[in-house]
């Protein structure tokens, strides 16, 4: 997978010492408190330099079994990192506010909304996305069950539903259809495949295969 490529770098003037100075002197905070100065900064083209304070920082994270040494802006979410920089587009953006679950991935085994997770917070972690669920071209039992029970229609929420469903069983929250409905309610499906998704999850749970 390509390292973080920043098309914008060419437009900037690298100025490491300036960046460090800005960071160390909390100049950003000072500017925020002094609007006239900020306006002047913009007039003199300072804002570009200020923004370079958001320049890439190193991030080491294991994604789908591969250690990634990345360099990313601290404001980049895990979702946008996966999609726009690592081209792992199986993880979907549905709301960007943690309200729909389409971006559900596993971080150190926990299901999280990738859109609410700043990528920098995954330093040293293990991230699994939908692309990392099947092993050696062998579908995960949950993927098989979604096909068997037709647990989708348009397929857009499906990666998030599947990642969430796997975690739901691992957490021990799949003892009954009612419990599954409660613990899957963070994953919206506008096509309305819910009934089939619950059947798929119960099938996997009762099938006893390792998830």
């Amino acid at each position: 997978m390509a390292q973080n490529e920043h098309p914008g770098d060419a437009l900037e003037t690298p100025d490491a010492s300036r960046r460090n100075f800005l960071k160390q002197s909390s100049a950003l905070a000072a500017l925020a408190l002094a609007p006239p100065v900020a306006v002047k900064a913009i007039d003199t083209g300072w804002d570009q330099k200020i923004a370079t304070a958001f320049d890439p920082l190193p991030l080491q994270v294991t994604i789908n079994g591969t250690m990634q040494n990345l360099s990313i802006e601290p404001r980049v979410t895990l979702l946008d990192l996966l999609r726009e920089q690592l081209h792992l587009t199986g993880t979907k953006k549905g709301c960007d506010h943690g309200q729909c679950g389409a971006c559900t991935v596993h971080v150190d085994g926990q299901r999280v909304n990738a859109c609410l997770t700043l990528a920098m917070t995954t330093e040293g972690s293990t991230v699994t996305t939908i692309e990392g669920l099947a092993q050696d071209n062998q579908l995960h039992p949950m993927q098989e069950a979604f096909i068997k029970h037709d647990g989708f229609q348009c397929g857009y929420c499906t990666p998030g539903q599947i990642m969430s469903a796997v975690a739901c069983i691992r957490e021990g929250h799949a003892s009954s259809p009612e419990e599954v409905r409660e613990y899957m309610s963070g994953n919206l499906c506008r096509c309305g495949a819910y009934a089939n998704i619950v059947e798929a999850i119960m099938d996997v749970k009762q099938g006893g295969k390792k998830v």
Binding site: R83, G90, E131, L139, Q143
Partner: peptide, 21 residues
């Protein structure tokens, strides 16, 4: 019969417009 594009949809292999680079 199973949905013919099922495998694409459960593996993240289905490309929606924003997935193209």
């Amino acid at each position: 019969i199973d949905r013919v594009d099922g495998r694409m949809k459960v593996t993240g292999g289905a490309n929606y417009f924003a997935d193209f680079e």
